[in-house]
Amino acid sequence: MKIKLYGSLRQKAGAAEHETTGTTVHEALANLCTYHDALRTAIFDGAALRAHVRVMVNGHDCELADGLETAVSANDQIAIFPPIAGG
């Protein structure tokens, strides 16, 4: 599945878009971090998401689904945002 990175996460991973696999958000993110270790500390605080990091599945925040255990499949699109503010 496609994972899109935003803000400072792009610099840490060297690109804005990546392909990865997994059956849950957590698996997909963990697989991504395997190849881009700098992302791990930017996204995770231990086993949980770091404060203010938002993860969307097809435009919907996974916190309002099953969090990191939200089920995903190959056709889903995940977007990860580091802490951002503005407006």
Partner: peptide
């Protein structure tokens, strides 16, 4: 990180993508 990283680094338009 909002006031010390996000806003200085990318400005207010960083919310465009989200």
């Amino acid at each position: 990180p909002l006031t010390s990283q996000a806003l200085p680094e990318f400005g207010t338009a960083v919310v465009m993508n989200v």
